[in-house]
């Protein structure tokens, strides 16, 4: 069985809600039935067949050929299987997913990996603001799994994140790990201002000093722990970094004492 491929016919005229197109929701449906699925998200009634050419049959492996910043909610509530997007994707990629994997070749909009519980999301381009964060009014962001952004992440990466691993390898905007509850954020590249703003617990690991360090973080000295190498090895195994990026005795800052929090901000001792 070949994977199920949705080839975008043209740039959509409105935002599309692609949450019905996950391996679980498409299991057992014929191509004809899939083409009749309605995609909300904009003013007009749009069906899958209006926007995509549907080929293949195995919904465990879904491919979106061509991409667009208007393709929202890809992989929402996904439980298993894989989704690949050959171009860009819109907002809320992998929202609340509990398993499986998503790979996006291009860049994505805001709220990527929002409230994801488990599984793996890899974005080869950039991500918008609030990746791994909660939507408005929600009390927690990402709760598990792995979110990798190979490009640059926007502002407030990992806002209110509770568990899991987020990596932004092309830097990130201001306030990464804002209001973080727990979990791990790794940033390689230029990080914006005030990482860990109002964080309670959790770890933020940077490969270089951020643009501005919050005055409410206190220096706790160089960090020597077996956990540093455990973490570095995990990151290398996951293909996130390819060298032990923290170096010997990276500097550790704790905070945010404005909350007060018991989080940590670790800055690599290696020169970049």
């Amino acid at each position: 069985m070949s994977g199920l491929t949705f080839t975008l016919l043209a740039e959509p005229t409105q935002r599309l809600d692609l949450s019905p197109l996950t391996p679980q929701k498409l299991a057992g449906l014929s191509a004809g039935e899939i083409e009749k699925i309605e995609l909300g998200g904009g003013g007009d009634q749009v069906k899958v067949g209006d926007c995509f050419k549907v080929e293949g049959s195995d919904p465990e492996t879904i491919v979106f050929e061509g991409g667009s910043k208007r393709l929202d909610w890809i992989g929402t509530d996904m439980e298993a299987g894989s989704i690949r997007v050959t171009g860009d994707a819109g907002a809320l990629l992998g929202r609340r997913m509990t398993g499986g994997s998503i790979v996006v070749k291009g860049s994505v909009g805001p709220y990527a990996g929002s409230q994801m519980q488990d599984g793996r999301v890899e974005i080869q381009g950039d991500a918008g603001d609030l990746a791994a964060g909660p939507m408005a009014g929600e009390l927690r962001g990402m709760c598990g799994g792995t979110l990798i952004i190979r490009g640059r992440a926007g502002e407030r990466l990992g806002d209110r994140m509770r568990r899991g691993l987020v990596a932004a390898l092309g830097g990130c905007g201001d306030y990464p790990g804002s209001r973080m509850i727990a979990g791990t954020i790794v940033v390689a590249g230029e990080a914006g201002r005030m990482p860990g703003y109002l964080m309670r617990r959790g770890s933020i690991l940077l490969d270089r000093p951020p643009q501005e360090l919050s005055p409410t973080f206190i220096e706790s000295g160089p960090w020597f722990s077996a956990f540093a190498s455990l973490l570095e090895r995990h990151l290398m195994q996951e293909g996130i970094v390819d060298y032990p990026f923290l170096g010997e005795g990276p500097m550790r800052y704790v905070g945010d004492n404005a909350v007060p929090g018991k989080g940590e901000l670790v800055i690599s001792s290696l020169k970049v």
Binding site: L165, A182, T184, S203, H234, E264
Partner: peptide
């Protein structure tokens, strides 16, 4: 401090 890496949990 509790840290989870993959499906393994560690205490520091």
């Amino acid at each position: 401090i509790s840290k989870r890496l993959g499906n393994r949990q560690f205490w520091r």
